[in-house]
């Protein structure tokens, strides 16, 4: 049995050590917000946070997560989720939506670590996430918008 911390909750999971975190989340814990797109770390649909770093859960074995904190799209912190979701809604980013959990989880790292990302920074953060529907232009403008929203939210905070 493996003990995992996911979105602040602790779970006991019966899974082989080499099972990718993605399938533990989806098949064992029923958290289907994180998606399967390629199984080969090529597309980013499976992006989660492990101790604050984005990782590709389709290839990361669950053994790597023992003793660490997993955050999925379902549990993304409000300080990042809210500006991103608000911007994503304002711009109407998603089309089919299947890649968007991964896009948002990747964008969250950029948002957290860079207060003024340039377009180049956005490339550097997001080029790993494929969108077959081609929403890239909107992802870019939504990230710029999320930065503004986050900055103004922070300004309002005491």
């Amino acid at each position: 049995m493996i003990q995992l911390t996911v979105n602040g909750k602790t779970y006991e999971v019966d899974a082989p050590a080499d099972m990718p975190i993605l399938w533990v989340l989806r098949d064992k814990l029923g958290l289907t917000g994180t998606k399967f797109g390629c199984g080969a770390a090529q597309c980013g649909a499976c992006t989660i946070h492990l101790d604050g770093e984005a990782i590709r859960s389709c290839v990361a074995p669950v053994s790597r997560a023992v003793g660490k904190k997993i955050v999925t799209i379902e549990g993304l912190d409000d300080s990042l989720a809210k500006p991103l979701q608000e911007a994503w809604t304002e711009v109407d980013v998603p089309q089919c939506g299947y890649c968007q959990s991964g896009q948002i989880m990747a964008a969250a790292i950029l948002l957290r670590d860079n207060a003024h990302p340039t377009d180049r920074d956005i490339d550097n953060a997001m080029t790993g996430n494929i969108c077959r529907c081609g929403t890239y232009q909107r992802i870019r403008s939504a990230i710029h918008m999320a930065v503004t929203l986050k900055t103004s939210a922070a300004a309002v905070q005491p």
């Binding site: 770390a41 090529q42 980013g44 992006t47 770093e53 984005a54 990782i55 590709r56 290839v59 990361a60 074995p61 790597r64 989880m105 990747a106 964008a107 790292i109 950029l110 670590d113 860079n114 920074d121 490339d123 550097n124 953060a125 997001m126 080029t127 790993g128 996430n129």
Partner: peptide, 26 residues
């Protein structure tokens, strides 16, 4: 996939080396 060195050689943002490359060969 647009990965880059980054200041510490560990990559940038959501594309750090260890995001995809695990502790052992897959």
């Amino acid at each position: 996939q647009g990965v880059r060195r980054g200041p510490d050689g560990r990559g940038l943002y959501a594309l750090k080396c260890k995001n995809c490359h695990q502790d052992a060969n897959l």
